[in-house]
């Protein structure tokens, strides 16, 4: 059974239809990627699933539950969270406090402490800088923090919106490596990326979004080999 099932999702901004009824699913243990150009509706899809943008039509089923109208702050408890585009860490809080915020829904203090230690193990850089104000971190470190913060809520499904944006090539590779590790450790991943080549390489399946519609779908390898995808997104 699919962990996340999106059916005929439509979103309007005023009179402009940003999503024209998209349907897709994410199975447990997969990395699924939505690729597409700027303005294709990738971020809108993510924001709408997580409840930050209201949808006008369609349903979103997560873990057997209809979450279409569930407010964003309740989804964390259900096991769904997002690393937003542009990272959006809390600049004025320390690294440690950011991780605490990530574990906001965790009531058990000892589990909270353990989880923070696990994040420090995964990202030793964050441990080194735990008392530093997050706004002073480098872009790469901020991305690690954003991912670590999201992992604090122990999500079943993690939505990642453009995690490689604005990072140096070396860090981009590192971020994709981390995403793969997270999947291998049991977190299902829905990824939105402009870096089609790198994301298709780690994806189990992928969908191509164009102007608010899904125009292609297949396994990561299939899409990477597809002529249309190569032409439009892989530069040749």
């Amino acid at each position: 059974m699919a962990l996340l099932e999106v059916k005929d999702l439509q979103v309007y901004y005023g009179v402009i239809q940003a999503l024209k009824g998209i349907s897709f699913e994410v199975n447990e243990g997969e990395i699924v990627t939505l690729i597409g150009a700027n303005g294709a509706g990738k971020t809108t899809t993510m924001q709408s699933i997580i409840g930050l943008i209201p949808s006008n039509h369609g349903t979103v089923i997560f873990d057997g539950q209809d979450i279409t109208k569930v407010p964003c702050h309740k989804l964390v408890h259900a096991g769904l969270t997002q690393v937003p585009e542009g990272r959006r860490i809390f600049q004025e809080l320390t690294v440690y406090e950011n991780l605490l915020m990530g574990g906001f829904s965790q009531k058990d203090q000892s589990i909270l402490k353990q989880d923070i230690e696990k994040i420090y193990e995964r990202f030793p850089r964050l441990a080194e800088r735990k008392n530093q104000i997050a706004g002073t971190l480098s872009g790469g470190e901020q991305q690690m923090l954003a991912i670590g913060r999201a992992m604090m809520s122990r999500p079943k499904l993690l939505l990642l919106d453009e995690p490689s944006m604005g990072l140096s090539p070396l860090l981009v590779d590192q971020v994709f490596e981390i995403i793969k590790q997270l999947r291998d450790d049991g977190t299902t991943i829905l990824l939105v990326e402009q870096n089609a080549g790198k994301s298709l390489a780690i994806s189990d399946r992928a969908y191509v979004l164009e102007l608010g519609e899904i125009v292609l779908s297949g396994t990561g390898a299939e899409l990477a080999a597809s002529e249309e995808v190569k032409k439009a997104y892989l530069g040749g």
Binding site: G51, L52, H73, V76, P84, R88, E92, E97, L100, M101
Partner: peptide
């Protein structure tokens, strides 16, 4: 306090605060 930090988070970025599970 947890509520106090949640206030700082909401004041800085309401959307991100919601993603943390904070009821704005």
């Amino acid at each position: 306090t947890k509520t106090g930090r949640a206030m700082v988070a909401v004041s800085e970025d309401r959307g991100a605060a919601q993603l943390m599970g904070i009821n704005v």
